[in-house]
Each structure stands twice: as structure tokens, then as C-alpha cells.
């Protein structure tokens, strides 16, 4: 079943074409890697799917409908930059999420935080960059959504924490949902991906099963990426 469909999608910022004729289907029950160099259009595509930007041309369908209030309910989105109030205590942030999202599972959030040894009375501003990122991921993954969109979820954390984050993503992944992970840290993430989407200069240049690519090219996704995007 298709959860997200982009048809002949274009996005311009002024005269600059950022996305050029994107055609893409995101199906249920899979983890996708949205991979591309800086400035290739990954975040723009993600913002369009999240209804934070409007297409210049073409259409996006979320569960068959245009993005809007309904689609925001079923998409759980981890933005590249945080939108949380760092003066809030963790427990207050959780209350905030509970108010905001019907599908937020408070119990799950506290369980995940406990595993991280994070005190609910601590404020975000007292935490390291890596811990903040983990808290945000916990909040996003504690929503019972159909589509999880994670923009650079492991960007600011050390390798050991990356494994924790990937485990958290995997543990909360179920057959009824899809996950889109945008990243340029490919070697850390690639083993959990079903499919990879390579985006270059606003165009999709490859959309294929990760294991099929490894089999055909006898190379890692990271090596294939380096090959495709050689400067």
C-alpha cells in the first residue's frame, strides 16, 4: 500500500529549481533511506511532504489525500533543527506532546527515557547535544504514526549513541508504518534500510532495494553513494 506519492513534483525558490520532476512512492512497512549530498533537496522534499512548503508544480498525496490537517496526524516528523523549548522540563515537554497529538503514547515515551537514564525533571537546556537529539527522537517515535520522517536523526551524536538511536527506530518500527530517514552518514545507517533513494541536484537518480544494489554492484551503499556523487 502506498502511503506517500509524489507525482511530477517541482519546487522552486525564486528562480532556483530545487526539486525537478520528483516521482516517488513510499509504501507501508518499509524503511527508506533518503540519501544525497548537502543541498541536493532532501530537506525540501521532506518539508513538502510535511505540508511546510507548497509545491511549485505537481502533486503530493498522503494516504491518497493532499497534505493538510489529516496528514499531520499520521506523520511523525523529526526536523533537522529543533523546535522544542529548552527551558521546559522533560515532563512538561511530554505534557505538551500529549496535548498536541492524540496518538502520543506517554507511557512509551517515559519507558524509552528511562532506558536513557534521563530524569523527567531535568530541563533540555542542561543536556548535551547528543542527549537532546535522543530526547527528540524518543518524542517523535512515541507517537503511533503511519509515517515517521527523520531528518538527520544521528547527525550530532557519537557512534555509540547512533546505535542506540537506530535500535530505538527499529524497535518502534511496525508493519503498518513506514520510516524515511534522511542522512549523509550512510555507513552507520545502511544496514537497517530496505530501500535507498538517491537524490542529486533535485532529481531522484536511484530508487532501489539496498540488498539488491549490494548484490548487483558488490559494494556497500556508502561506496555506491561515493561513486555516484564523486566531486
Amino acid at each position: 500500500m502506498t502511503l506517500v506519492e509524489c507525482k511530477n513534483l517541482y519546487k522552486n525558490y525564486g528562480k532556483r529549481e530545487v526539486l525537478k520532476n520528483i516521482n516517488l512512492k513510499i509504501n507501508k512497512g518499509k524503511i527508506y533511506g533518503l540519501l544525497g549530498p548537502n543541498g541536493s533537496g532532501k530537506t525540501t522534499l521532506i518539508k513538502l511532504i510535511n505540508d511546510l512548503l507548497v509545491p511549485t508544480n505537481g502533486t503530493i498525496l498522503i494516504n491518497g489525500k493532499n497534505p493538510g490537517i489529516e496528514s499531520k496526524k499520521i506523520i511523525s516528523y523529526l526536523p533537522e533543527r529543533t523546535y522544542l523549548n529548552f527551558d521546559m522540563k522533560i515532563s512538561e515537554t511530554i505534557e505538551y506532546f500529549k496535548d498536541f497529538y492524540d496518538n502520543f503514547d506517554e507511557k512509551k515515551a517515559y519507558e524509552l527515557l528511562k532506558r536513557l537514564n534521563i530524569n523527567k525533571d531535568d530541563k533540555l537546556k542542561t543536556m548535551s547535544k547528543g542527549t537532546k537529539e535522543k530526547v527528540q527522537l524518543v518524542l517523535v517515535m512515541s507517537r503511533k504514526a503511519d509515517i515517521y520522517i527523520l531528518d538527520e536523526p544521528i547527525g550530532g551524536v557519537d557512534p555509540a549513541s547512533r546505535d542506540y538511536i537506530l535500535d530505538t527506530i527499529l524497535k518502534n518500527f511496525n508493519d503498518n508504518a513506514s520510516i524515511i530517514i534522511s542522512t549523509h552518514l550512510i555507513s552507520d545507517v545502511e544496514k537497517v534500510l530496505d530501500d535507498v533513494i538517491f537524490i542529486s541536484d533535485g532529481k531522484i537518480i536511484l530508487n532501489e532495494s539496498a540488498d539488491k544494489l549490494r548484490n548487483e554492484r558488490k559494494k556497500s551503499i556508502d561506496a555506491i553513494f561515493r561513486e555516484e556523487f564523486k566531486c
Partner: peptide, 9 residues
């Protein structure tokens, strides 16, 4: 796992 070969194999 070796990322150069299919993980399922």
C-alpha cells in the same frame, strides 16, 4: 555484517 554484501544473505 559486511555492508558490501546483502545483509539477508
Amino acid at each position: 555484517f559486511d555492508n558490501e554484501r546483502p545483509i539477508y544473505l
